[in-house]
Computed example of a mutant assay.
Amino acid sequence: MRTPHVVVVMGVAGTGKTTIGPLLATRLGVPYAEGDDFHPAANIAKMSAGVPLTDEDRWPWLDAIGAWAHEQAGLGGVVSSSALKRAYRDRLRAAAPGVVFVHLTGDRALIEDRMAHRQGHFMPTALLDSQFATLQPLEPDEAGVVVDVSGSPEEITARAVNALRDLERFEPRAARSSR
């Protein structure tokens, strides 16, 4: 499957955006960009210290991701971004109107366990509560799909590809759920 869309892999920390994003990009035959790489150093320092980001902290980061997505418009691409609030997704859509979201979601205990066992990431498990408190799930008028993160990375990626395929075929402007 190849897509001219830019797909934003979103969700709270620990859902596997950094794992699923590159796998999805490979399956779609498009480039991948790691959303964390767009954070200014001050944001990474703040999160590393266990301090949640404010909206003001996030705007430059979202604008940088949006600029990348805009450059990829018509070419396709996959980028990871928590995109937890509707306002954040609206900002990404304003920069690149054709973006489609893959919302990775799952059981909180599973996500916390995965976060606790990952190595070399700046986001501490202590910030998971703030992530869930901030999360506003995709709304029906947002182009995107919801994909459960239980199972292997390959299974999750396959569910995402199938859900995107269904979205393009059947409901190009509505969110669907894939479990």
Rank of each mutant, 00 (worst) to 15 (best):
M1I: 07
M1H: 10
T3W: 01
T3D: 10
V6M: 10
V6Q: 08
V7D: 10
V8N: 04
V9C: 08
V12L: 01
T15R: 00
G16D: 08
T18V: 06
T19A: 12
T19S: 13
T19H: 04
G21N: 00
G21S: 02
P22E: 05
P22F: 09
P22H: 07
L23G: 12
T26V: 01
V30D: 11
V30K: 03
Y32D: 01
A33C: 07
A33W: 10
E34K: 07
E34V: 04
G35R: 04
D36H: 08
D36G: 08
A41G: 08
A42S: 15
I44G: 01
I44N: 00
I44A: 14
A45S: 12
A45N: 05
M47D: 02
G50A: 03
P52H: 01
L53R: 13
L53S: 12
L53E: 10
E56G: 15
R58S: 03
R58E: 07
W59I: 06
P60A: 01
W61V: 00
W61F: 07
L62H: 06
D63E: 15
A64M: 03
A67H: 13
A67M: 08
E71N: 14
Q72C: 11
Q72N: 06
A73K: 05
G74S: 06
G74T: 06
L75G: 07
G77C: 07
G77A: 10
S81G: 13
S82T: 14
A83H: 12
L84W: 11
K85S: 08
A87W: 09
A87L: 11
A87F: 07
Y88H: 15
D90P: 10
D90L: 14
D90M: 12
L92Y: 09
R93F: 00
A94H: 12
A94E: 12
A95C: 12
P97V: 05
V100L: 09
V100R: 13
F101D: 03
F101W: 09
V102P: 12
T105R: 15
G106L: 00
D107R: 04
R108P: 14
A109K: 11
A109W: 04
L110I: 14
I111C: 13
E112N: 04
M115N: 03
H117L: 08
H117T: 11
R118V: 11
Q119K: 13
G120T: 04
G120H: 11
T125K: 15
T125L: 14
L127G: 04
L128T: 05
L128Y: 00
A133M: 03
T134S: 14
Q136E: 15
P137R: 09
L138T: 07
E139A: 14
V147G: 02
G151K: 07
G151T: 06
E154Q: 14
E154R: 11
E154S: 09
I156E: 01
T157N: 05
A158K: 05
R159I: 02
R159E: 00
D166C: 05
L167K: 10
R169S: 13
F170N: 12
F170R: 14
P172Q: 01
P172L: 02
R173C: 04
A175P: 03
R176H: 10
S177E: 10
S177T: 14
S177H: 11
S177R: 14
S178C: 12
R179G: 07
